[in-house]
Design a protein around this nucleic acid. Structure first.
Length: 203
DNA sequence: GGTAAGATCAGC
DNA sequence: CTGATCTTACCA
């Protein structure tokens, strides 16, 4: 399946790392795995949409640590979301994993998601992705490079798309001007199709 | 100390 | 469109 990505892969600007994470595999301890088809970059103190914009808190501390660890946070009181920490220690940079195409242990993923689901609905969103792979707060801080808790990101030889689709990020109100969401163009497992520019209705 | 908003999702 | 209901920021 290929080795875990090295620390140096993550220790860069998340706007570089994010598109390169497309088509990599995220693998968890019990063998469930998915191909990453959608990501977003978050850029610390320079990014008002980032959890780390206003400095370190109990929740976001992992994101200020060493690159290559997993930052898992609890969202809207219901869902878990997973990020890879990027950049230098103290920057609070990371990449949110927003969608996967399930590729290994489909039955376990289906069971984790519950109810009959269309294949595309198994991992097409950050909360769904975490639920599909069983990622919860227990995995916050896991090292994707040393694989200390069984979670890692593998390169199985499929390269990132030469021209990934680039759009504004989903679900934020500040920082909308930055096109820091990337996805595999045309892949049916992404959470949202590219948003068309607003129609010009003025005469 | 209270309140509102949020990197979401499922079910009306 | 709404509810679920955790974390944080911000105001009093």
């Amino acid at each position: 399946m290929g080795p875990p990505l090295p620390r140096s892969f993550y220790a860069r600007d998340p706007r570089i790392v994010a598109p390169e994470l497309l088509n990599k595999l995220i693998v968890v301890a019990d063998g469930r795995a998915g191909r990453i088809v959608e990501v977003e970059a978050y850029c610390g103190s320079e990014d008002p949409a980032a959890h780390t914009y206003r400095g370190k808190t109990a929740r976001n501390a992992t994101m200020f640590g060493e690159a290559g660890h997993l930052y898992v946070y609890f969202s809207y009181g219901i869902h878990w979301c997973a990020n890879t920490v990027c950049g230098e220690v103290g920057q609070g940079f990371g990449v949110l994993l927003r969608a996967i195409e399930p590729v290994q242990r489909l039955e376990a993923i289906q069971e984790a998601r519950g109810l009959p689901r269309r294949a595309v609905d198994l991992g097409n969103g950050p909360g769904k992705l975490a639920q599909a792979l069983g990622i919860t707060g227990e995995l916050n801080g896991a090292d994707l490079v040393t694989v200390d808790r069984g979670v890692w990101v593998a390169d199985d030889g499929i390269p990132p798309p030469a021209k990934p689709a680039t759009t504004p990020r989903v679900g934020i109100s500040k920082g909308r001007e930055h096109p820091w969401r990337w996805h595999v163009l045309g892949n049916p497992y992404v959470s949202r199709a590219p948003r068309l520019p607003p129609a010009n209705l003025t005469p």
